[in-house]
């Protein structure tokens, strides 16, 4: 059974991430302990809320995650994905973990389009990856976000269309990120978590 460390830095609904990973077959632990994180087969960086607060709450664990990503896969979810980027424009410019090239931007205003982008939208697979094994193109997953990661086509695994097409799943080296919530995306989300655990970690 793969040991997955869910980084606990005091934000969000970790219970659902934990249950989702457990359901997908992982030996999951919610932890802020650098030793536990270093010993894991894979790392999940969850998160909801604001970028700067997230990075601040992560604190010393920033270095722990960066170091661990040299050895094992890291999956950032929602804000966790955005924190993998070099920087964010949310309330000023702030540095991210720098594991994936690019920055986090706010959706531009568009008539009749609500922000946050909230609800079920589909994934267009741009690059084959084990993360999507067994999942067809254009499957629906659950999103809640007002900012998106602008990265290179090489790092873009899936795109989703809302106001503009944006990278909904990204990858650079060992760093994976998904803008949506797999733990809130029913069977599709659970399959994706299972793929991360079984085929990537």
């Amino acid at each position: 059974m793969k040991k997955i460390a869910i980084i606990d830095y005091g934000v969000g609904n970790l219970r659902s991430v934990y249950r989702g990973l457990e359901r997908a077959g992982a030996d999951a632990t919610i932890t802020a302990d650098a030793a536990v994180i270093a010993a894991a087969d894979g790392i999940v960086l969850p998160g909801v809320g604001a970028f700067r607060e997230g990075m601040e709450m992560l604190g010393d664990l920033q270095e722990t995650v960066i170091a661990a990503s040299r050895e094992v896969p890291v999956l950032g979810i929602c804000l966790g994905m955005q924190m993998l980027m070099e920087s964010s424009e949310e309330h000023g410019t702030h540095n991210g973990l720098g594991l994936v090239p690019g920055s986090v931007k706010r959706f531009p205003p568009a008539p009749g389009m609500k922000v946050p982008h909230m609800g079920w939208n589909s994934l267009r697979i741009e690059q084959d990856d084990p993360l999507f094994d067994g999942l067809m193109n254009e499957r629906y997953v659950y999103f809640v976000h007002s900012f998106y990661a602008a990265t290179t086509p090489e790092c873009t695994l899936t795109t989703t269309e809302y106001i503009c097409p944006f990278a909904s799943s990204i990858k650079s080296g060992n760093a994976y990120g998904v803008q949506f919530h797999p733990e809130k995306s029913g069977a599709v989300g659970l399959r994706l978590l299972e793929n991360f655990i079984e085929r990537i970690c």
């Binding site: 982008h117 609800g119 079920w120 939208n121 267009r124 629906y140």
Partner: peptide, 8 residues
């Protein structure tokens, strides 16, 4: 491919 309307 669009954001779907939700039934809650």
């Amino acid at each position: 491919m669009v954001l779907t309307k939700r039934i809650i």
